[in-house]
Nucleic acid binder design. Structure first.
Lengths: 155, 155
DNA sequence: CATAAATTCCCCACTTTTTCCCACTTTCCC
DNA sequence: GGGAAAGTGGGAAAAAGTGGGGAATTTATG
């Protein structure tokens, strides 16, 4: 129950580093550090997943692990289930926050999202979603007229 | 059951701070602070949503969370449902009241509503709606003739 | 296998933004 | 009118964000 909410834009430097907004960091540093020792939580990790819509999804370990429970139920010997498992792990990566609260995104991840210089991070409750700013803008404006109908249908 | 009712106009300062009228504040400080301890309620939060009509909607956590239940049912892997989720979280932000009862609105939020110096806050029962004064005035006068027909149809 | 090149990691320094707090003015209410 | 609450503005301290240097590690290459 992280509850990431809000939208921010930050730059990605030449080293591929992307800052996780402080307000998001607080959300999971808080719950990572339930060691009771009060010691600084060692190395907050994040799972990075290439989404179909051209964005990147960032998950806390606890949230990803919960999703992963579904995967573990799949059989290695059912072709479809095996394929799905392969597809998912092929798109998955893991990264850690550095001392400044940044993560290093690999070249493939950045390419997948089309990120060059800037990135938008959207809090989507359980996860964070990373977009190339223009790509997100285009998606939203191209589909602006669909918001009301969709909202009307689904919520 | 917040029951915000009334209309007020307040200034937005250079730091983007907007005062939540005292009578609205009382509504939800009351129900936030059901800790029983009588201690000052820590950090009253508000969700801010960019509405389609060029206004900003302010929700109390309890009210927004109820809406969010609908969102949580949507699938990440159904394109329409995913798009809707993206559209909503891309327009959503979260903010807290400072000690003076103000919220800090981000630049994007202010731009969305066209707010420069002043803002009108309308209590609309479950939520508060924030308008740039002239924009609201224009909307109302441009559609004055439609009030009776609409009211006739729906209420 | 050794050396060079590249990448990663760790840290520091600077700039900008946010937060916190205080003070003043206006309005409301008895 | 006097006191309290509400509303407004701004200064200073703290935090967040950004960039980059240099050591260490990994990867390429002769």
């Amino acid at each position: 129950m992280p509850g990431f909410i809000g939208r921010e834009q930050h730059s990605v430097d030449e080293k591929g580093r992307l800052l996780i907004p402080a307000r998001f960091r607080r959300k999971f540093l808080l719950q990572e550090d339930n060691s009771g020792t009060g010691a600084p939580s060692r190395s907050p990790a994040l799972y990075v997943f290439k989404a179909d819509d051209g964005s990147l999804e960032l998950y806390e370990p606890s949230v990803w692990n919960e999703k992963e429970q579904q995967l573990l139920k799949l059989s290695d010997f059912n072709p479809d289930e095996r394929l799905l498992t392969t597809m998912i792990y092929a798109r998955l990566d893991q990264t850690e926050l550095d001392r400044s609260g940044r993560i290093a995104l690999s070249r493939e991840m950045l390419d997948h999202a089309g990120i060059v210089k800037d990135a938008v991070i959207i809090g989507a409750n359980a996860k964070m979603v990373v977009w190339e700013p223009l790509r997100l803008e285009t998606l939203l404006s191209d589909n602006a007229g669909r918001f009301a109908p969709l909202a009307n249908r689904y919520i």
